[in-house]
Amino acid sequence: MTTTAAPGTCAATDIGIKGEERTDIAEQSSTDVLSAADIPWNLVVWNDPVNLMSYVSYVFQSYFGYSEAKSNKLMLEVHRKGRSIVAYGGKEQVEQHAVAMHGYGLWATVEKASSSGDGRGRKGGARG
């Protein structure tokens, strides 16, 4: 359960997430429907003084399948900057991630990729 991905597969996981997104968009454009799902949304995890650093990193590894290095980097960004964009995608997808984070007890919110101060998005730029 906790070994959803071996370390070093984060690139593949990222592609997987993008792949899902592209499928969604492809399905929509095939029916000529443009919807809010085309706008990328960010999943933001916020710092709090309670959650253990080790646990936050474990959640990123376990739930997203991110590598240990990537999970630690995101965890430290949450810790030092107060927040980090840990995933992005269509609205429903990031909302689903947010509920999962709440299940783990992490403080997570969703926001439109362009709506925040650092709204460039962690990987949003890659979608150009």
Partner: peptide, 30 residues
Amino acid sequence: PEEAKLWSMALNDVRLVLAERLDIRDEADA
């Protein structure tokens, strides 16, 4: 592994509630 995951989530929720009761708002409080 599945039980360990549930345990870690349960302990986390217990700590979140205790931290609110203890008024832990920032790292200094912690």
